[in-house]
Structures are given as structure tokens and as C-alpha cells.
Amino acid sequence: MNMFNFVIDDSFNDYFNFILPDIAFIQECRYNRINKQYHAEWAGNYKEPIDSRIHLSVAISKDENISKSNIDLNDDYTCVFVEYEKYKFAGVHLPLIDKKRENERKREKILSKIKKSDSKIICGDFNACSNNENQEYLEELLNDNYYIDLWQEGINQEKAYYINFFGKKIKADSKKNKIRTFVGNRHIDYILAKKNFLNLKEIRIDFRTLAFTDHCGIILDFDINPKDK
């Protein structure tokens, strides 16, 4: 999820404590807005103290066993690669390619690192929309690198839900419900997983996070496939 529009009433920490994830990935997070009770691994080679005006991708957990992966983007702040319980995970925030192509070199560098990371799960803001280059890269990951789109997998297995503003969990149906992950009524955030890595229990898109961000949080519950342990 994105944490750029964080509010001052502590609703993010309340929400995080309520859902109790083993690990969470956040894009556009300000350094001074992560509660000290959480262990954080920040994108890039930033060292404490980090300027609170800088927005970074971060992986956070209450488990100190989370650690930085050997995949390094140096001073880039958009993607974070970590290891947790011996598995590699990636939290990404892909830049859009504008008409002036200013982000193209940066984007290609990030995409190369994502492929090299061989992460079991890749999640975050892909900025992938119909007919843009990020959508093409997303499809490349799904077709060539043996990843699956877990939201679509959840739909196929009838294990996909969305949570409305009342906290009611409603089964998602791609034919009846237009599911969005962004305030702009688009689905640009994804969780991908290596094929056969996990057994999907449930995946949920949570509209309630729009109270403190412009993205809907995606919550994934899964068991690791015993063959991968």
C-alpha cells in the first residue's frame, strides 16, 4: 500500500495492529512514520537518520528475522528486496514512462533487478494499466518467469474478497464487481508469486485503507507449499 497521504490520528498503526501481518510492504513511506515496535528494512542504502521528507519503499515486520537481500539498488528508493524465513520477497514501485522518456533508464534498471532477485513473491504498485509499458512488463513476468497473479488466482479459486468501508468481507466476482486498488478507479497494484510456491488461503482488497492513503491495501493469506520447504 501507499502511505503518502498518512493522517495524524494514528489510524495506520491501528490498522496494522488489527490485521497483524507477518510482513508488510509499503510504497512512498516517510521514515518518521513507522512505529518503533516494527522492524523496518528500507529501500536503497539509506542509513539512519533518514530525512523524513524522503518517500521510500519499506518492508516492515514485528519479527526481527526479516533482513535485507543482497539485491542492491544503491540510492534508489522505489524497490526493497528482503529475505524472511529464508525466502526472498520484493516490494516494488515501478515508475511510469512519460512522453519525455525521462524514467526509462531508471525503470529498466529496476526491472533487471526484479528479475535477478528471483523473489518468491513480488508485490506493490506496478502502475500497470491497459496498453502502457508497465502492463507489458507485468505480462512478461507472468508469461516468462513463471509467476502467477494471485488476485486472478483468488478469483479462479473463489478465494478473493474485498472489504468495504463497514469492514464487511464480500466475495469478489470479476463479472459483477469492478475491483480497484487505486483511488483513480484503476487496478494498478498486484501480488505475484512463483508458481507452486504457496497454497492460497485467501486474498483481500481492503477499501478501508483509503482512509489514510490513495491505494487499497491487498492482504494475502497463504501457506508455503510443503515441497518448497
Score class of each variant (00 low, 15 high):
N103G: 11
E104W: 11
E108V: 07
L111Y: 14
R105L: 05
R107H: 03
K116V: 12
C129I: 03
S112R: 10
S119T: 13
N103C: 04
N134L: 08
I110P: 01
N134F: 09
I114P: 04
S112C: 14
K109M: 04
K115L: 05
D125G: 01
I110N: 02
K116E: 14
F126Y: 02
C123K: 11
F126A: 00
I122C: 03
K109S: 02
A128T: 05
A128N: 02
R105T: 06
K113E: 15
K120H: 09
I114Y: 10
D125I: 00
C123F: 14
I122P: 15
N103T: 12
L111K: 10
I122T: 14
N132M: 08
F126L: 00
N127K: 06
E133W: 13
D98A: 14
N103I: 04
I97K: 04
S130P: 14
G124H: 02
E108A: 10
S119M: 10
K99W: 14
K116I: 15
K106D: 03
D118A: 15
L96P: 07
N132V: 08
N134Y: 11
R107A: 12
S119R: 06
C129S: 09
I121C: 03
R107G: 13
S112Q: 13
K106C: 05
K106E: 01
R105M: 15
C129T: 13
G124C: 01
F126D: 00
E104Q: 09
K113R: 09
A128D: 01
I110T: 02
S130L: 10
E102W: 09
L96Q: 07
N131F: 10
K115Y: 13
L96G: 14
C123R: 06
G124P: 05
E104K: 12
C129G: 02
E102C: 06
K120I: 12
I122G: 14
S117D: 07
N134T: 14
I121L: 09
D118R: 10
G124Q: 10
I97V: 14
N127C: 02
D98R: 14
N127W: 07
S112H: 09
K99G: 07
I97H: 07
E104V: 14
L111D: 03
D125R: 01
K109F: 01
C129A: 02
N103P: 03
A128M: 01
K109G: 03
D98T: 15
L96H: 04
E133Y: 08
E102L: 12
N131P: 00
D118K: 07
G124R: 06
S112W: 04
G124I: 02
E133H: 08
E133V: 04
I114W: 13
S119V: 04
E104C: 03
K106I: 05
K115I: 08
R101G: 11
K109V: 11
K116R: 15
D125N: 03
R105W: 09
N103M: 11
N127T: 02
R101T: 09
K109I: 04
S130Y: 04
D125M: 02
K116Y: 10
I114H: 07
E102D: 05
R105C: 12
I110H: 01
K116W: 12
S117T: 08
